[in-house]
Amino acid sequence: MGAFVALGLFQGAVYGLLAVGIVMVYKAKRAFNFAQGEFGGIAAFCAYLLIVALGLPYWVGAVGGLAAAVAMGLLVERAIVRPLESSSRTILLVALVGVALFAIAVTVLLAEPVPRVLPPLVEGGGVDILGAGIQPQQLILLAVLAVLAGALAWFFRTDLGLAVLASSQDTLAARVVGISPEAVSRLVWGMAALVGGVAGLLYAPVGIFTPGFMTATMLVPAFAAAVLGGMTSVPGAFIGGISIGIVQNAGIYLLGQQWQVPGASQLSVFALLMLVLLIRPQGLLGKEA
């Protein structure tokens, strides 16, 4: 059981990382970014291409992967989000779902859908925590998440961060204060993509990865984490991610291993998501009802 909690903690760090990106877009744009996972997917594939296929140094691959994710974020902002500014949020959501499918389709087209292994940032044996073998990569992940969440929470208190929030409330007001909503929009999507890219880069080496791996396995838990955290709170997303990770792994242990329920991991995330939405829809740290 302890091992599952430890695994959940580290798994949850990835959810938290993705959730932070989801929260950023929601805070600034009131949109559900269903393409968030694929920022990580693209980053992982580009890094793989540079490091494994082309044999370049690790840092080149990492920077390249992140650059690709940010480029994708900016492209999505320019080609999808901006033109649909006046459409309903449901339409925007459908379009972002389309982006995720599109990204998966592109990765499959360019690289065959075979499982791949990306070398971890730090080689070396695992550490034993509560009876679970934890890779150094996962320790890094947790640290990165903590640092990022702190930095972003700070960011939303700076002038620029407040401007981002202001633009989500009232574009006209933001314009009057001298902030271009377009610039804010680019900034938000770029940052969300960067965070997603970091998540993908750090998570891919933990196991094997295939096209769409981030969307298929990470997106819903990440959203659940964001919702649990209150959808508008960066620290909330962090805590939410860890909680979801632990609940999920506890679910795998209790339901999956003890009772042989298939799909225990999805089931426990779904159950928790439902509980939150039905009992406390404003989440743990959310401000609005």
Binding site: F32, L93, V220, Q266, V269, F270, P281
Partner: peptide
């Protein structure tokens, strides 16, 4: 709304 989209996806 959007939350329903999420719930149905998770479901």
């Amino acid at each position: 709304g959007l939350y329903l989209a999420l719930v149905t996806l998770a479901f």
